[in-house]
């Protein structure tokens, strides 16, 4: 494939998919180890009322108000989950279950009761996003990467996703030690003076920011898959957190690139006419990687699991 075809049509969706995958996989490592991996699922449900409220307030489908609405809903949900978990003294999974089902139901109710039925907020878009449509029309080939005018016309989703990824990387890098320590041994972390509750909240908020940004660009399927599959597969490859995070990033990139290529060209190779959903294929590839790691990964045995006596 020539640059003239690849750069405008495939480069930007691939980059957006990769940024989204990595931005979700990084906090996913800690969420999986903290048994909070389903938070990604929860967030993708709870953003619905936020999006609807943002639409009702602004009356238009625009990226920024909707992302703000979604982000606000996500932060509210995180606070509610924490509050229910602490006040009710129940496990995080149960608190998430209560919050995300009620907020999703609230979103649907709001959508049905308000005058938004004419608006194009459909399930297809929410689940799979529209990665394939995020193309870079002004590009003519690889040379466009150096052309300021063409660069100015990059899809805004790419800029947003790249900025989000930088924020996630910065957070992980800066707070690496406290995150690792408090995930491993929260009591000990507190005796060192760490505000572990605040840290856990910050982690979930960063995850929510990554999820909302990715949700806007690529839909919720990727978000849910990327929080769990690359970190879980990475855990099966190594017994060191530092290496696990490296593996998870590699798996996320591999899923995004391979998934995009397979979705675009796979059906053609099989003699079919159309392409399949890139987001769906990316999630599928990450699932296959997890299955392979679960079968062949070198660190599969749960040696440290509590033993039955």
């Amino acid at each position: 494939m020539s640059g003239a075809e690849f750069v405008p049509l495939s480069l930007t969706p691939m980059l957006i998919g990769t940024c989204a995958a990595v931005a979700c996989a990084l906090p996913g490592n800690f969420l999986v180890l903290r048994r909070q991996a389903l938070i990604g699922d929860a967030i993708s449900h709870v953003v619905l009322p936020g999006i609807v409220v943002a639409f009702l307030l602004t009356g238009a489908i625009a990226a920024w108000p909707m992302m703000l609405g979604a982000g606000g809903a996500a932060v509210l949900a995180v606070a509610l989950i924490e509050a229910i978990r602490r006040l009710g003294r129940i496990e995080p999974g149960a608190a998430m279950g209560v919050v995300f089902t009620s907020m999703f139901a609230g979103g649907v109710l709001l959508l049905e009761q308000s005058d938004t039925s004419s608006v194009h907020l459909d399930v297809q878009h929410a689940l799979y996003g529209n990665l394939e449509s995020l193309i870079w029309l002004d590009a003519t080939g690889w040379a466009s990467l150096l052309d300021p005018e063409a660069l100015g016309a990059l899809p805004p989703e790419l800029i947003r996703m790249a900025v989000t990824l930088l924020v996630v990387i910065g957070f992980t890098w800066l707070l690496w030690r406290p995150l690792k320590l408090s995930t491993f041994d929260e009591g000990f972390a507190r005796t060192l003076g760490m505000r572990t509750g605040l840290l856990g909240l910050a982690l979930v908020i960063v995850a929510a920011v990554a999820a909302v940004a990715a949700f806007d660009a690529v839909g919720s399927i990727i978000v849910i898959a990327m929080f769990i599959c690359p970190p879980a597969a990475a855990r099966l490859m190594t017994d060191r957190l530092e290496h696990q995070v490296g593996w998870s990033v590699a798996f996320a990139v591999l899923s995004a690139v391979l998934g995009y290529v397979l979705a675009g060209y796979g059906p053609l190779w099989l003699g079919a006419q159309d392409a399949v959903s890139a987001a769906g294929m990316i999630a599928t590839v990450s699932g296959v990687i997890l299955a392979l790691a679960a079968r062949f990964g070198p660190c599969r045995s749960r040696t440290g699991a509590p033993q039955e006596i």
Binding site: K180, F184, D239, R240, L241, C299, R302, G304
Partner: peptide
């Protein structure tokens, strides 16, 4: 009280 499966040395 610790998850000894945690990936660390």
């Amino acid at each position: 009280s610790i998850d000894w499966d945690f990936p660390t040395r």
